[in-house]
């Protein structure tokens, strides 16, 4: 009997793991955005001394893990697992980063839901007694994503108003079986939900039902209410997806409007930075959580946060074959207080 389960999709962690340190590195555009003061490092150009954007993304992930370790004042050999993923084909940014980190590695793919996915699995591994220290990391890069999913950068096309801007950046969290606040208290794992959207330039709408579903399920499973949270933040739904999510949650009888935001909206000033609907990518929720939200938790400006990273599970092949875009979202409840 799985005694740590709560309701249909939630796990209540008996010994909630601590997030003892985080780190975030972002690209130049993100470094000009409203959250610039919260990031550990801002790189000056999108190659960062590497020969290709893919190598740059891998370096972002490698360096962000190293930075998180140094923030936690531990070394690689003390870490039991590295859980990481990214958007590139065969998750090369993560595995190539791991090849230079001497940490046992599990590669994850959850599209842009990877940050919450890695935190979910990491905290369950720790609570299960399988590890003491775990590094959770993910990254994305505007230029690697554009060339994989869309057009060459110098192609003179127009981006639709629903399109989002892939965040160049990487974030990492170090989870530990011992340590202080903040703690991961609950994990609600989302189902893949496909609302039938086929437009790859409207991923917010494709992911919104998955996000709404996992948030509502989290409330049902745990008995918590929106007012119990200081912040509920989705990964990269951006302006259109956020509005839809809020309305879908309201239909189920929960009003989250006072506490709800989206990392894709927070990271850019859409009007000034010309990012249309907002930010996206694995790096979006990773840098907003590990940069901004974590620091707010440490300074007690926020005490309970629900991080809901959202992923659009399409591939260039599936899009060309006319498949719709399934969405996924995972919720991780992070709190300064454990009851």
């Amino acid at each position: 009997m799985a005694h740590k389960r709560l309701g249909k999709q939630t796990v209540k962690l008996q010994n909630p793991p601590s997030i003892i340190a985080t780190s975030s590195i972002v690209g130049p555009k993100e470094g000009e955005g409203p959250l610039k003061n919260f990031f550990d490092q801002i790189i000056q150009d999108d190659l960062w001394g590497e020969e290709s954007w893919e190598k740059c993304e891998s370096k972002l992930q490698r360096e962000v893990v190293k930075l998180a370790l140094s923030n936690a004042k531990i070394v690689e050999s003390q870490v039991d697992f590295l859980l990481a993923g990214d958007l590139l084909n065969q998750i090369i940014a993560s595995s190539f980063a791991a090849r230079q980190l001497a940490i046992p590695f599990f590669g994850l793919y959850g599209a842009c839901s990877t940050m919450a996915e890695s935190l979910s699995l990491g905290s369950m591994l720790i609570d299960g007694g399988f590890a003491d220290k775990i590094a959770c990391a993910t990254s994305s890069h505007f230029s690697t994503a554009e060339r994989q999913y869309r057009y060459p950068l110098e192609h003179g096309n127009q981006r639709p108003l629903t399109s989002q801007w892939t965040v160049t950046g990487a974030g990492a969290s170090i989870l530990s079986s011992s340590g202080g606040a903040p703690y991961i208290t609950h994990v609600t794992t989302g189902k893949v939900i496909d609302p039938g959207i086929k437009d790859a330039n409207n991923m917010g709408a494709a992911m919104a039902p998955a996000a709404a579903d996992v948030i509502v399920q989290h409330f049902k499973d745990t008995g918590l209410k929106p007012s119990d949270y200081d912040l509920i933040i989705t990964g990269d739904l951006a302006s259109i997806g956020k509005e839809i999510t809020e309305e879908l949650i309201a239909k189920e009888g929960y009003n989250v409007s006072n506490v709800y935001s989206d990392c894709g909206i927070e990271i850019f000033d859409n009007k000034k930075q010309d990012t249309h609907a907002g930010g996206s990518g694995c790096g979006c929720s990773a840098v907003v959580f590990n940069g901004y939200v974590y620091k707010q938790l440490l300074s007690k400006k926020l005490n309970r946060v629900l991080l809901v990273s959202t992923g659009a599970l399409l591939s260039p092949t599936s899009a060309m074959q006319g498949e719709s875009i399934p969405g996924i979202a995972h919720a991780v409840s992070i709190s300064n207080i454990i009851s």
Partner: peptide
């Protein structure tokens, strides 16, 4: 949450999409 009717959802989303100038 109830299962989403894909047709209704597509219409609902279309109303949310900002119109190009």
């Amino acid at each position: 949450m109830k299962k989403i009717n894909q047709k209704d959802y597509a219409n609902y989303v279309n109303e949310k999409i900002p119109k190009p100038k």
